[in-house]
Simulated assay, not measured.
Amino acid sequence: MSGQAFEPKNMIFRQLGNTGLRVPVFSYGGWLTVGYDQKGDIVKELMQTAFDAGINMFDSAEAYASGESEVEMGRVIKELNWNRSDIIVTTKIFFGVGRKERHNTRGLSRKHIVEGLNDSLKRLQLDYVDIVFAHRPDPTVPMEETVRAFNYLIDNGKAFYWGTSEWSAMQIQQAHEIARRLNMVGPAAEQPHYSMFHRERFENEYEPLWRYENYGSTIWSPLDSGLLTGKYNNGIPEGSRYHSNLNGAMDENVKHLTSPEGKAKIEKVKELTALAEKLGGSMTSLALAWTLHHKGVSTCILGATKPEQITENVKALDIYPKLTPDVLAEIEKILDNKPTPTATFGRRADDGQLS
């Protein structure tokens, strides 16, 4: 596959954790976007807009739109004829595709990991993905089986790296320890929720992973499904994600919006919006740029449903260098939600290893 060359523009690239893979700080994802209401030409427009903005990383999952997200992304990649070495494609395995069974059609058994990715590759029309994530932990499967299965995919050229999504820090550490014992490849990155309003796990529980393991991350919902754009400051506008509420995915968010805690968040968004405007940007660009300041963030997944949203999102690169220590302190004062550090696991004094 070869075609139009990739031009990174002013995009910033980072190493994905402790690997040699260089990823853009913004990537484009298909959760609640591609394969749902966004099908056909609009998907091509969205992905081309991202590509033109310097975003060459695209994230999906077998479960997104019951496989249709992968189908749509795969079709566009083929139609746009991008050079395969210029793009990074990721997917996730765990939930299966539109099935209710809880046996071998989902989970992290060797059977589903291998068969699941084979099916994903067919939908994507690709020979391999760059990263395959375990979409959730599976306590019903021995960790060693899961580690061996992902290494099988790597050894057979189906993926270059594997990662985790919404795993606990201890589960991730267990996978690393097993991989070291077996002389295998451990997970390279976690895909967690991280935003101004969702900080506890990322900044607290995962802190030893960023600090000692140099673990990477591909964060999702950095705008909290639009709450941090300011669009919900005066209710739920028609056409918004809360309004469309695909398959009830936003039920809890909508309910939270009218709660005392939700109303308090809206007031914070209004204060942050004023600060963003002083910096010459929007609330959206401020919220996105803020996530990039954490050392654990490798790439921030954008979930835009319109091309112009992608164009707006990447303007965060202009705000990012303006987030000086004083500005960050002002943001912290408005948010007033910095997690209190707790020790989840740490180094042993005698050998320097995580325990």
Rank of each mutant, 00 (worst) to 15 (best):
159 A>Y: 07
290 W>N: 01
251 D>S: 12
9 K>D: 10
55 I>K: 04
99 R>M: 12
158 K>Y: 02
55 I>A: 04
138 D>R: 09
145 E>I: 01
113 I>A: 03
225 S>I: 13
95 F>Q: 12
2 S>V: 13
319 I>W: 01
73 M>Q: 11
69 S>Y: 02
144 E>K: 10
296 G>L: 02
255 K>N: 11
136 R>F: 09
80 L>H: 13
297 V>L: 09
341 P>L: 02
18 N>K: 15
263 K>V: 12
146 T>F: 04
119 D>P: 05
24 P>W: 04
8 P>I: 11
199 R>S: 05
145 E>T: 01
167 W>C: 08
87 I>T: 05
272 L>W: 07
326 D>H: 11
50 A>E: 09
77 I>K: 03
244 S>T: 15
28 Y>K: 08
17 G>Y: 00
129 V>C: 02
319 I>T: 05
332 E>N: 15
296 G>T: 01
145 E>V: 04
268 K>Q: 05
124 L>T: 07
147 V>D: 06
148 R>D: 14
325 P>R: 10
276 A>G: 09
98 G>F: 08
90 T>N: 12
42 I>Q: 05
161 Y>V: 04
348 R>P: 07
57 M>K: 09
190 E>H: 10
327 V>S: 11
4 Q>V: 15
261 E>W: 03
238 E>Q: 14
24 P>E: 00
227 L>Y: 03
297 V>P: 00
273 T>E: 14
163 G>T: 06
5 A>F: 12
48 Q>W: 09
79 E>F: 08
168 S>T: 15
85 S>N: 15
119 D>L: 13
186 G>K: 00
158 K>P: 05
281 G>K: 00
235 G>W: 00
108 L>Q: 14
282 S>N: 12
300 C>E: 02
136 R>I: 01
3 G>Q: 13
275 L>A: 09
318 D>Q: 11
335 L>I: 10
184 M>Q: 15
284 T>F: 03
55 I>P: 07
216 G>L: 04
188 A>G: 01
5 A>M: 12
42 I>R: 03
176 H>W: 13
42 I>K: 06
352 G>S: 06
180 R>I: 10
213 E>D: 11
29 G>F: 00
348 R>C: 13
216 G>Q: 02
107 G>F: 01
349 A>R: 13
174 Q>S: 14
132 V>G: 04
183 N>V: 01
316 A>K: 07
288 L>I: 06
87 I>F: 07
205 E>R: 08
143 M>W: 08
268 K>C: 03
220 W>P: 08
219 I>W: 00
328 L>A: 12
76 V>E: 06
350 D>N: 14
15 Q>R: 14
237 P>V: 08
199 R>C: 05
95 F>P: 09
30 G>R: 02
2 S>C: 11
319 I>F: 00
152 Y>R: 10
336 D>F: 03
260 P>S: 00
217 S>Q: 10
214 N>F: 12
170 M>E: 15
154 I>R: 12
184 M>I: 01
116 G>Y: 02
353 Q>L: 15
317 L>N: 09
153 L>V: 11
106 R>C: 14
318 D>K: 14
285 S>W: 06
85 S>E: 15
82 W>H: 00
197 F>P: 05
244 S>F: 15
